[in-house]
Simulated assay, not measured.
Amino acid sequence: MGSHDGRVAIVTGAGKGIGQELAVQLAARGAQVVLLDLDDCAETRERVGAVGVAAASLRCDVASEDDWKAAREGVEKRFGRADILVNNAGIYPFATIDDLEPDVFRRVIRVNLEGPYLGARAFAPLMAAKHWGRIVNISSDSIATNLAGLSHYMASKMGVIGLTRGLANDLADRGITVNAVAPAITRTPGTSVMPEEVTTAVWQQQAIRRFAEPGDIVGPILFLTSEDAAFVTGQTVAVDGGMMKL
């Protein structure tokens, strides 16, 4: 279980859902974890503490360059290094083009796409200093669905795939791999507000016809952030019960 011994891992959107479960599982495998979120991460800190690790927690708006700078300074001061960055934070307000206001569109792009760019820019130099790093960006299998009201979200998550491929090229010679995971719709506090008929209609398109749980998504991320994935970069892994067959 020590696949991440000695690593310092930063997880955005760590206060709940996939980010919380990932932080706990990284800690269980030996990593020191840094929780970044707009909201308090008390529950995540408690769960991480239960596996014997004291998590660091910082407030961070991933669309803010200043917040990323502060996060990097905090991590460097406390740990002196950064090995893993998982850009998990994201937003997905539903709105068709008739109701999609420009400021909402821009906010979704800034959080979901610019956030991973800013995160990589902040932490890649610390990874390069050790010539070892893992960056995982969270995309979405929504790009393959016929669900209305998510054009802005789909645009941002397609952009994440392009960003991932480009960063993989930029950072390979510094010992850093960059990959993306495209999850299915997952049972989290964020999706709990969606009508049941909508979520059911989505997961019934999958080969494995059930709602994904956070733990279903975390396993592949753990692999991509481990030494075992040293020769995997620029890839998008669909973790969606077989809806997208890449």
Rank of each mutant, 00 (worst) to 15 (best):
V239F: 12
A50Y: 04
A201V: 11
K245Q: 12
A55D: 05
N179S: 13
T233L: 05
G133A: 02
N137M: 03
V53E: 01
G215Q: 11
Q32M: 00
A31L: 01
G215S: 10
G219L: 15
G19E: 06
I138N: 06
S139H: 06
E46A: 15
F94V: 13
G159P: 08
Q32T: 08
V202H: 06
D216E: 07
G234Q: 07
P93R: 02
G13S: 11
M154C: 15
Q206H: 14
V218Y: 10
G162N: 01
A172M: 04
G242I: 09
I185H: 12
Q25A: 04
A28N: 04
V218L: 03
P214D: 01
P195M: 02
I10R: 02
D37I: 02
S226N: 10
V198I: 15
P189A: 05
A184L: 08
T236I: 13
Q25K: 13
A14V: 05
D240A: 06
I208K: 11
A148L: 06
E101K: 14
L85Y: 08
V51N: 06
R110S: 14
G219M: 11
A180I: 07
G166W: 07
H131T: 08
A56P: 01
A129S: 10
V104K: 15
D83I: 09
R209I: 12
R78E: 06
R47W: 03
L38Y: 05
A82C: 06
Y117W: 09
G2Q: 15
I91P: 13
V111F: 11
A9H: 04
R209M: 15
S139L: 01
E101W: 07
D5R: 11
E21L: 14
E65H: 12
I217R: 00
L224K: 09
S151K: 10
L126I: 00
I84C: 03
A50W: 04
V24S: 11
K16G: 08
